[in-house]
Simulated scan of single mutants.
Amino acid sequence: MFTLVKNAQEKYPNKNRMIYMDIEGHKNKDGGFDHDLFELQKDFILGFLMQFISEVSMPLGRFKNENQKNDVPDGLNIVPAKD
């Protein structure tokens, strides 16, 4: 997803970027999203990527960002949490 946003900025500089995401499966025994897909939506998309897009529509909800940043970093470094 990060690469898609980075490529969109390079191909269409400073244009509004939107993500539409459907998720099939990945449900827990209670019918909610499993940990990984909940974390992807909440922590990665909303917690980090949202600053570089103007809107996202995903199973967790639809969210808008009126202050999209266009200085998308060159790369992304994901490391495991210490706890």
Rank of each mutant, 00 (worst) to 15 (best):
Ile78Glu: 08
Ile19Thr: 07
Leu40Tyr: 00
Gln51Glu: 12
Pro13Ile: 07
Asn67Asp: 12
Thr3Asp: 03
Phe48Gln: 12
Val72Leu: 03
Pro80Ser: 13
Ala8His: 01
Ile45Tyr: 07
Gly75Glu: 09
Asp34Ala: 06
His35Gly: 05
Pro13Phe: 04
Lys15Ile: 04
Val79Gly: 08
Gly32Asn: 15
Leu60Tyr: 03
Val5Glu: 01
Phe52Ala: 04
Asp22Phe: 05
Ser57Cys: 15
Gly31Pro: 02
Gly47Gln: 05
Met1Phe: 13
Pro73Glu: 09
Asn70Pro: 01
Ile78Arg: 10
Val5Asp: 01
Phe48Glu: 10
Asn67Ala: 12
Glu55Trp: 05
Glu55Arg: 09
Asp36Trp: 08
Phe2Asp: 00
Gln68Arg: 06
His35Gln: 13
Gln51Ile: 09
Phe48Leu: 13
Phe63Met: 13
Leu4Tyr: 06
Phe63Cys: 08
Arg17Trp: 01
Gln9Gly: 03
Phe63Asn: 02
Asp74Ala: 11
Phe63Ser: 05
Tyr12Leu: 11
Thr3Glu: 05
Ile53Asp: 00
Gly47Thr: 11
Leu76Tyr: 01
Gln68Ala: 08
Leu37Ile: 04
Gly31Tyr: 14
Glu55Lys: 12
Gly31Met: 12
Asn70Met: 04
Asn16Phe: 10
Ala8Thr: 11
Val56Asn: 00
Gln41Tyr: 02
Thr3Trp: 03
Pro13Gly: 06
Lys42Leu: 14
Glu24Asn: 14
Gly47Ser: 11
Thr3Arg: 03
Phe38Pro: 00
Asn7Lys: 10
Leu76Thr: 01
Ile23Pro: 00
Lys64Thr: 14
Leu37Trp: 02
Leu46Pro: 00
Gln41Met: 13
Gly75Gln: 08
Leu60Arg: 03
Arg62Trp: 09
Phe48Trp: 15
Leu76Phe: 06
Phe48Thr: 15
Asp74Gly: 15
Phe33Thr: 00
Gly25Pro: 05
Asn28Trp: 03
Lys69Gln: 15
Met21Val: 09
